[in-house]
Nucleic acid binder design. Structure first.
Lengths: 351, 351
DNA sequence: CTGAAAGCGCTTACAG
DNA sequence: CTGAAAGCGCTTACAG
C-alpha cells in the first residue's frame, strides 16, 4: 500500500546526499540556495515527509502525547480533552486518547487492571508526555500497584496529573478540587432562605465527592443549617444516578427545599425525579448544579450551576506538560475559582 | 529521564545474543527452555519492552490507529469513539484522536485547511489505519483539495469513512445515513393526528440534514400533510441552535402541533423555546428527536427519540478497519435501522 | 556548503 | 537451538 518513498529516493533524484536532503528538511545547517531549491522541488513532488519512526529513534521523541481519561463520553472529560488536543496540535503534537472506563464501582468489584494496562501501553509507545485526567487517582484509597505503576510511568516520561498531590511521585499535580464552590453555592441557597438542603450524586470513596461532602457538612454547620443523613444520596455521575438519588431524598420523609447536585447530568436526573413527585423547580425545590456542562440558558428550567472553567483547566494542563517537555520552568499556579452562574432553577425558599 | 534500557542490555545480562532475546520476546522461533527462562527473568526484572519505533521501522506497522472527528464534545462522536477505542485497545492498538473542529459554517467562512493538516499528520505518524467519522466528508459539496487529500490518505493507509460513498477513492465507506428513521417518525406523528409538523436544527449544505429534509418533504407529500417553508428552521446541532430554530417556527404565524428535531441537544433547546412561548409538551406540541444521545427516560419531559444504535456503528466500523488491516475479506453489511423509542414528549394532536 | 559513515533499537534471513 | 550481520529510514558529528 505505502509508496514508501524515502530520503534515499529524494537524494538520488535530486543528485545530492541524504545528509543534504535532511538538512533542507530540517533547515538546520546552511545549504546553498540552488541545491535547496532543487531538493525542495523533489520533496514537494512526492509529498515526502520523513518517517517519524526513524526520526524518533534518533531524536528520542515522538511528538506524541498520551491522555488518560475514565470516560470520554462524560462532558467533563470531552471538554477537557478538546482543549488539550487543540493546544497539542498547535504545537505539533498528536494525542493518543486512552479511555480506561474506570469507575469506583467496577474497581471495587475487582476489575482493576485496565488502567495499568494503559500505562504500559503509553510507556511502550514512547510518548513524549502524559496527562492523567482521572481514574483511580481520584479515589480516596489508591491501590499500591497503581501507585507503583504511576511511579514507573512518571519516572520515565513527563507526566501531569489532574488531581490531588501524592507523595514521592515525580508528576506535576494540578489540583482541580475546589470546595470553595460548594461553600459559595450553599451560602447562596441559605441567603435565599433555604434551611434544608440535600446533596445529590457522586460516588462515595471518590475524593471529589468526599471533599465536596465535607465542604457541604462544614458549611451547613457554619450556617447552623439542619444536617441529616437522609439529606445525602450518592451513587454516580450520570442522569440515572441523579434521578435515583434525588428520589431517595425526596422520599425520605423530611422535605428539603433545595438540592445541590454533583453536575449537570445528575441535575437533569434530579429534575426528572422532582417532576415525578409532582414538585416544581424552583417553586418547591431549588436546584443548584456543581459542574456546568451545558449552557444553563437553554435548559428547562434554566439551570443554576457552578462553572469550573474546565476549558481553562485544559489549557493550563497542556501548557504545563508542553513546558515540562521543553524543560521550561514551571508556571505559576492558575486560579480556577468556580463561578456561580445563576439562572432560574434556584429561588427563594417557600416553606 | 528515560532509563533507555535496550535489547542489548538484556542480551548482555542474560549472556545471549540480541537475536535470542528477540526470539523469546516474539516467541517466533523455538528457544531452549532454559535460555528462555533466563532471558525472561532479565526482561521482567527491568520491565523491558521493545522500542516500538525500532520495531515499527522494520515491521512497517505501528499498532496505532487514527480517528478523525469534527467535535469530540458532541455525544454522537464521543459514543462512537469510545466504542472504537475499546475495540482497538482489545486488539492491541492505540488510537490517535484528531478533533478537527470542522463545521459547515466555519468552512464556508474560509477556515478550510484544518482537516487536511490532520490528514497529513496522520500520514506522517504512519498509523496502520484511519477512521474518518465526519467533517467535510459530510458536506453536500466536497472541495477538490479535500478529495485529493482523502485520496492520498486512502491510497497510503487502510481507511474507513463513515459517510456516503464517493467515487474513485479507495476507502471503505459505511453509510450511516438512514432516512427511514425520519419516515418512521413522521408516520408515527401522523398516526397521532398531527397535520403540521416542523423540522428543527441541522446545518444546511450538510448531507445528513439535506437528506433528512428530503425525507421529511417526501413523507409529508406522501401523507398529504401541509408542507410550508416556515415549518423548517435550520442552523446547527447544539442546544442554542435548537432554541433559536424552534422559536422561529413557533413564531412563524402558522401553528405547528409537532416538531422533529435533529438530535437530543437540539431537542433540549427546542423544549426551552416551547416553554418560553408558554406552550407545553406534548399537550400543545409533540417533540420527536432524531438522534438519541441521552436516556430519554430521565429527561423532562421524557423524550421520544430515534435510536440510531451508534454503539453498534462504532463496533462495526472498527471491525471493518481491523479486518482490512489484516487483509481479511470485507464483512457483510450490517443493518443499522434506527429504532423509535417512544416516551412522553409525543402524544395525540390536540388541535 | 556537502558527503561518507556511524548509530538509533530492533527483526530476520543466513549460517552454523 | 543460537549467533553474526544486514537493514529499516533517518540525523549528526566528522571531515573536507
Amino acid at each position: 500500500m505505502d509508496k514508501n518513498i524515502t530520503i534515499i529516493q529524494i537524494a538520488e533524484e535530486s543528485g545530492v546526499s541524504i545528509a543534504t536532503v535532511s538538512r533542507v528538511l530540517n533547515n538546520t545547517v546552511p545549504v546553498s540556495a540552488k541545491t535547496k531549491e532543487r531538493v525542495q522541488k523533489v520533496i514537494d513532488k512526492y509529498h515526502y515527509t520523513p518517517n517519524p519512526l526513524a526520526q524518533g529513534l534518533i531524536l528520542k521523541q515522538t511528538k506524541t502525547l498520551g491522555v488518560i481519561v475514565p470516560d470520554i463520553t462524560n462532558p467533563y472529560f470531552s471538554t477537557l480533552f478538546s482543549e488539550i488536543e487543540w493546544a497539542a496540535h498547535q504545537s505539533g503534537y498528536s494525542v493518543i486518547l486512552c479511555n480506561t472506563a474506570f469507575s469506583a464501582v467496577s474497581f471495587a468489584s475487582g476489575e482493576r487492571r485496565k488502567e495499568e494496562t494503559y500505562f504500559q501501553m503509553i510507556l511502550d509507545k514512547k510518548v513524549d508526555g502524559v496527562i492523567i485526567a482521572g481514574g483511580q487517582i481520584d479515589l480516596c484509597e489508591i491501590g499500591d500497584s497503581y501507585i507503583e505503576a504511576l511511579k514507573r510511568l512518571a519516572s520515565t516520561v513527563p507526566a501531569v496529573v489532574i488531581g490531588r498531590k501524592l507523595p514521592d511521585i515525580p508528576c506535576t499535580f494540578v489540583n482541580k478540587e475546589n470546595d470553595s464552590g460548594i461553600v459559595t453555592a450553599i451560602r447562596y441557597l441559605a441567603s435565599l432562605g433555604h434551611k434544608r438542603i440535600g446533596f445529590v450524586g457522586g460516588e462515595r470513596e471518590v475524593y471529589i465527592t468526599e471533599s465536596r461532602l465535607d465542604a457541604y457538612h462544614r458549611t451547613l454547620l457554619e450556617l447552623k443549617l439542619e444536617d441529616a443523613p437522609e439529606f445525602v444520596a450518592t451513587s454516580d455521575y450520570y442522569m440515572a444516578d441523579g434521578y435515583h438519588a434525588a428520589l431517595q431524598i425526596l422520599d425520605c420523609g423530611t422535605p428539603v427545599t433545595a438540592l445541590l447536585a454533583m453536575n449537570d447530568n445528575v441535575s437533569l436526573g434530579a429534575l426528572r425525579a422532582i417532576s415525578d413527585r409532582l414538585l416544581s423547580v424552583p417553586g418547591d425545590i431549588s436546584l443548584v448544579s456543581c459542574d456546568r456542562f451545558y449552557d444553563g440558558e437553554y435548559l428547562t428550567p434554566r439551570l443554576t450551576s457552578l462553572d469550573r472553567h474546565n476549558d481553562l483547566l485544559g489549557r493550563h494542563v497542556i501548557k504545563l506538560l508542553l513546558d515540562k517537555i521543553q524543560g521550561l520552568p514551571a508556571q505559576d499556579a492558575v486560579d480556577f475559582s468556580p463561578e456561580l452562574v445563576i439562572w432560574e432553577s434556584s429561588g427563594p425558599a417557600h416553606l
